[in-house]
Design a binder for these strands. Structure first.
Length: 289
DNA sequence: GCCAACGTTGGC
DNA sequence: GCCAACGTTGGC
């Protein structure tokens, strides 16, 4: 398993070395290829478990750590958007929440984010992908539950919104996420995935040929981060946005997907997660979809 | 294709 | 720091 880029020292370490700092168990081929990972040298699983500090410092827009070692971040680095991004185009809200007041300070100081997760606690997320073909810089950025089922694991690159990135940085190994189909004929939840690496720099951001290239960022000081995800299962039945909205003023009143529709990576509370899992089991009439 | 809701940019 | 113009997301 990858434990993230906490100790990453961008200027002094080779890519291979950086990669070796991870604990690897289930990592997408793309990540393996990028960091020169070789099966034969798989590091022994580090059980030491990461010790998490109670509080972390993150700059206001959640960037935390981008230019400095992640050490101060509770978790991992930040994610990004788009390759899979294909997945949803980025989100924008990040800054929204961090908002201006915070932003101002951020430049000069860091805001403290409390990592109040209990030991062993799992958190839940929703990540948007675009299942229908869309060409960006000559490449099709579509990504659906079918693709993930075939690949088994995938990077989740391409997120170019700070708030979404921050959410990815808060992810921990073993967290679960809904794969949501967006910007398509029938938007809704298509499957469940497991987070299999914590955040690390999104290497597509400095790849000129990549659809999600961001000319303003550099490998020496990554701004965007991503995670790797693992296919868990398809939903037993597709749970559409329309159906979720039926509970928008009740059980799912606080669901970020409904309240912040432009955020591509958003949190789901345990109650919301369990409610949606129950919804999945419900038998629906064809016309009811 | 339309358009609402935001986010970003840049002039002042 | 304000705010108009513009760009993007994403449902419909």
């Amino acid at each position: 398993m990858l434990y993230g880029f906490r100790d990453w020292q961008p200027k002094h370490q080779t890519r291979e070395r950086k990669f070796a700092q991870y604990q690897i168990e289930m990592v997408s081929k793309r990540t393996q290829a990028h960091y020169g990972y070789d099966e034969g040298q798989k590091p022994a699983p580090r059980r030491s478990e990461r010790t998490r500090k109670p509080a972390v410092k993150v700059d206001q827009d959640g960037d935390s750590i981008a230019s400095s070692p992640l050490s101060s971040v509770p978790s991992s680095p930040e994610p990004e958007k788009k390759t899979p991004a294909k997945r949803a185009r980025a989100n924008k809200d990040e800054n929204a929440t961090e908002s201006k007041p915070a932003a101002k300070k951020a430049k000069t100081a860091t805001a403290t984010v409390i990592d109040d997760r209990q030991p062993g606690e799992i958190r839940y997320w929703l990540m948007k992908a675009e299942p229908e073909p869309r060409i960006e810089k000559g490449q099709d950025v579509k990504f659906s539950i079918d693709d993930l089922e075939r690949l088994r694991t995938s990077t989740w690159e391409g997120v170019r919104n700070h708030e979404a990135k921050k959410n990815m940085q808060r992810m921990r190994l073993g967290d679960l996420a809904f794969l949501y189909h967006s910007n398509c004929k029938e938007p809704g939840i298509a499957g469940v995935m497991k987070i299999c690496t914590e955040g690390y720099p999104d290497f597509t951001a400095w790849d000129k040929s990549h659809p999600y290239f961001d000319a303003k960022t550099k490998e020496e000081s990554p701004v965007w981060h991503m995670v790797d995800v693992e296919f868990e299962r398809r939903m037993e039945r597709f749970v559409s946005l329309k159906e979720l909205r039926e509970y928008g003023d009740k059980e799912l009143k606080g669901l970020a997907l409904l309240r912040r529709s432009q955020l591509s990576v958003s949190p789901v509370s345990r109650e919301e997660w369990e409610f949606i899992m129950e919804l999945e089991k419900k038998v629906v009439d064809a016309e009811d979809s």
